[in-house]
Design a protein around this nucleic acid. Structure first.
Lengths: 203, 203
DNA sequence: GTAATCTATGGCAGTCCATGACAGATGACA
DNA sequence: TGTCATCTGTCATGGACTGCCATAGATTAC
């Protein structure tokens, strides 16, 4: 990894951290891109070369999450019931977070606080989740050998799994969160979800 | 209903219709608020007094849908299993659409075409759905007498139901849609969903 | 019917987000 | 070191949205 790459990654994180702190300090809407750029000493124009939009700052972890889910799906046996595979994918995301660096953990917790205060941002996150859902549905449909554009069952399966992910993570949590607590909660949610369905409903 | 009110409703619809047509003609992003305002002969400033944002144009039917769901929930017996009540609420939305005026039907079908071409708008819709979900969860939690901030089961139940709604409506549909087809499809989706769960899972 | 009042509208100025074009700076590499 | 690709800053522009104030229109009271 060359100097260039490392430097880029560094500024990227610097922007992210500065933005999160500013958002929590003075609110999301009252923080301008100029301020964020100023506080990491780059031009506003450059900001948009690292993040396609101000909103995009808030979605940085989604890509990683989706990647993990896609990877997990690929390792699951093709004849496994699709919802089971999806549950494994969701669990993989949670456990990946457990192993994340202290910095990433801090970022995630800040982001959670931010979302608590700005419902609009939760909406953004959900919307992005829906896009992921589409792509996962394609994957699951391919495994089952059905046509993703017509098979509602596949979409339902993926949607239910993503709902579980969302409820586990995003659902209002009164207690001050720590990563351990969040993962535990996710485990509980997964268990609830698994017990909800009729055995063999998704085969 | 005074002249004032009627006139307002009329311009509101005029704006909406003009916007939808312009969007379909030249694309959502390439259509400016100034153009929309111009084509109904109001000032751009006035546009924002009817719709809080350009995006808001695309969400006009959500309020009505949520209202119907809330109403339906209120008429369902309090001791009915919550998911069953939610399914009734979803069905009520579909059947309300069946009875809508030809104008509203036309608007809805235009909107669907628009969303097919602009994934970002689907995202908006989903985001708005998430907000609705929160409010419905409050309602369901109140009925069950649980605390909405801690009870994940309630959130799962509502999320699953909303997923069903979304899959039924938003899911890619190859065939040129007519209201009848859409409602039929929703019925099928509802049936699939209902068969997925273990009997009594939500009591 | 007229006057007083309330509200919808228009115009204007200004903020912020976002993007294209170009030129200068900086790391990559032979 | 010199060439090349890429990153960055500057400038200009456009479009969404808001606050403010003046005016035209509708509503109500008399």
């Amino acid at each position: 990894m060359g100097l260039r790459e490392r430097k880029k990654e560094k500024t990227r994180l610097a922007i992210l951290d500065a933005a999160l702190d500013l958002f929590l300090e003075q609110g999301y809407d009252s923080t301008t891109v100029d301020q964020i750029a100023g506080s990491v000493e780059i031009s506003p124009r450059t900001f948009f070369r690292y993040f396609t939009s101000k909103d995009d700052l808030v979605l940085w972890f989604h890509d990683h999450g989706e990647e993990i889910m896609q990877e997990t799906l690929r390792t699951r046996p093709a004849d496994e019931p699709p919802f089971t595979s999806m549950i494994h994918a969701v669990r993989a995301v949670a456990h990946d977070m457990e192993d994340s660096t202290p910095e990433d953990t801090a970022r995630f917790l800040k982001l959670r606080r931010l979302m608590d205060e700005n419902p609009r941002l939760v909406g953004l996150s959900v919307a992005r989740g829906a896009a992921t859902e589409q792509r996962l549905a394609v994957e699951i449909a391919a495994r089952s050998g059905v046509d993703v554009t017509t098979d509602q069952r596949t979409h339902l399966i993926v949607a239910f799994a993503m709902s579980t992910l969302r409820v586990g993570f995003d659902c209002p949590q009164p207690d001050v969160p720590d990563m351990r607590i969040i993962v535990d909660r996710m485990e509980k949610t997964l268990e609830l979800a698994q017990n909800a369905f009729r055995p063999g409903w998704d085969v």
